[in-house]
Design a protein around this nucleic acid. Sequence first.
DNA 1: CCGATTTGACCCGT
DNA 2: ACGGGTCAAATCGG
Length: 311
Amino acid sequence: MGVGHGMALLYWGLKCHHLSPSSSLEARQFLLDKILSSYEKSLSLLNWGAWVADQPKPTVGIVDSTHSFAISSPRSEVSDQDCKEECGRDVYKKRKTQSRWTEQVKVCSGTGLEGPLDDGFSWRKYGQKDILGANFPRGYYRCTHRHSQGCLATKQVQRSDEDRSIFEVTYRGRHTCNQASPSPVASPSPKNDFSKQSKYHCKQQQQNQDKPKPTEDIFVNFGSDCVQVKNEELGSKDDIFPSFSFPCTSFGNGDEENNIFTESMMENSFLGSFSPTFISPATSESNYFSMSACPLNSFAIGYQNVQTLGV
DNA sequence: CCGATTTGACCCGT
DNA sequence: ACGGGTCAAATCGG
């Protein structure tokens, strides 16, 4: 309720104020401060403070004029795990306490793409396993910048048994790296960089999910993907975070300039590193965040039409 | 040559 | 003992 209100307010603010790249930096900062303050109030209302209280306050900064802003709330877990990784193998214990959430990525069949879409981050595959009871193997990915920047974000990709067009992407940890450079959506010339960068993703999809498709189709066909985000296993079993969603039409007003919220947040941090904190750090499995971002024109990888699919 | 992927072995929690 | 997750050597490919 509270967070939903906060999110509604956030969206309202962005929409009503027509936050655009041409807006002054001060205006945007002011609005974001307002929004965040409301959001934080909502958080405290929710009494999920136990989790939030330890967290450094989320900071919002407008990075540059390409209307990308970074929202981060660094956690001690990062340095903690860094140490543990260096000092010994304690990743297994740490795993339990890491933030984790799942996106169900639906790739519409017959569109030329059969595989999990690129989420704007660069991943390196480090393993694959056959999972008991699953028809398809699970792929394990970690951030490409794990060593160069100590980024500990990982994800698992598994194709759904019931619907081959659905991929369950489970993210763990947040990106602490500077992912602006390799990200196809964040680059000044997305299309060129994307086709180049998606090389490995494309290949990986072919090898991993046995459905080779032409690279050329990807950029277009991502537009029909659906992503559902849900949070998992973050400790709390309390139903304090009812699911909520934006109506699909809300974002897609066709005005690119007004899509700062969707394109910026999603491409930079929303799905990649910010969402676990922002969305629902303490939800039970029955509660999940659902987010619509239909015609995300600039959001090249095309997260779209997220709905409460129900799990 | 360098970075990504593959894949069997290994580790850990249950 | 078993299953899930990670490691790392071998391999691939630009």
